[in-house]
């Protein structure tokens, strides 16, 4: 609609096109709690039809950012445009077309799953079919159960159903898979992928790197209220400049060796970076064979043994560690 007309306008520059394509545009967002700055000058651009992940440790400001975009919290500074509408002036119009799953699952006590979905559906001009929705989240048998009789994961799936009740074009899922069993997690992934197939935009936060990597088209990494990286998973991993991550433990006479330091390992050929794990070392390399040979020689020369040697492709976890200096759930 508006999108195609702007695209066909030759006067619009490349930058403008990306702005028009964006489902969500956030500029210079700031949120303070007293003197504490929870969100510090965040800018984001979420494209139509993509699955956008926000990654970050506890307290990074993910939930706060999402809730400002959803119109639940008010920003102290900055601009939020959702589907071309300013959230400060068109809150209700935006809320009619977005679906929200909050981080903490909250449901009315004493209402059954079916009644809850019906109620939320009635809050919007158009609602999707309740039975279909229950089937989508696998709660058909629990249609007449009240929240107190549902398990934590089932409550969370019901909250997901509520996020989809108005057939939204933009869906926010705040840690949708935390507390879910592996099967339910898979189910949620399928649901999210189906949403994208139907042309919807999904914004989700997660602490699971594998989830972000397999599910998300693009990812923003947040820490201390700031976005420290924003790219596709592959693009983020490419910033490491490494084709593999070598993990191993060095032991001397059966005990962990402290003689070998990350600094020394960084000097080996092909190595782009190295760091200390709990008991092990992680070595990133651009040339696996070259580094492995050098590593074996190095260990032999120092008469230390190498145990539990693993060679993996680098992951988002590695990117995260490099950017923040700590693990996601440390």
């Amino acid at each position: 609609m508006a999108q195609t007309s702007t695209l066909s306008n030759p006067l619009i520059t490349q930058a403008d096109v990306s702005f028009a394509e964006a489902m969500v545009n956030v500029k210079g967002l700031v949120k303070r709690y007293g003197r504490f700055v929870a969100v510090n000058d965040v800018s984001l651009s979420i494209r139509r039809g993509e699955i956008f992940g926000v990654l970050g440790p506890n307290g990074a400001g993910k939930t706060t950012t999402l809730e400002i975009i959803e119109g639940i919290r008010k920003a102290d500074a900055g601009e939020v445009i959702v589907d071309g509408l300013d959230v400060r002036t068109h809150r209700r119009a935006i809320q009619q077309r977005i679906g929200v799953q909050l981080q903490a699952t909250t449901l009315f006590p004493d209402l059954t799953a079916c009644e809850t979905i019906n109620l939320f559906g009635a809050l919007y001009p158009h609602a999707t079919n309740t039975a279909e929705l229950l089937a989508e989240v696998g709660l058909t048998e629990k249609a007449s159960a009240r929240p107190q009789d549902l398990s934590g994961g089932q409550r969370q799936r019901l909250a997901l159903a509520l996020a989809l009740v108005n057939n939204p074009t933009l869906v926010f899922l705040d840690e949708p898979t935390s507390g879910l069993d592996p099967q339910s997690r898979r189910m949620l992934w399928d649901t999210v992928l189906r949403l994208r197939e139907r042309g919807k935009t999904v914004v989700l936060t997660t602490h699971f790197m594998d989830e972000a990597q397999t599910l998300c088209d693009r990812i923003a990494i947040m820490d201390h209220g700031m976005i420290i990286a924003q790219d596709t998973p592959a693009g983020l991993i490419a910033t490491l400049g490494a084709s593999a991550a070598i993990t191993c433990e060095f032991t001397e006479n059966g005990a962990p060796s402290h003689a070998i330091t990350a600094t020394e390992l960084r000097a080996l050929p092909g190595v782009t970076d190295a760091r200390d794990g709990l008991e092990h070392k992680v070595i990133y390399t651009a040339h696996v064979e070259q580094t492995l040979v050098a590593l074996l020689q190095y260990a032999a020369a120092r008469s230390v043994t190498m145990n539990h040697l693993q060679v993996n492709a680098p992951t988002l976890e590695d990117v995260f560690l490099k950017l923040t200096g700590r693990g996601l759930r440390d």
Partner: peptide, 8 residues
Amino acid sequence: KRLAATPL
């Protein structure tokens, strides 16, 4: 808060 995310 959840209701505040709806147009109610």
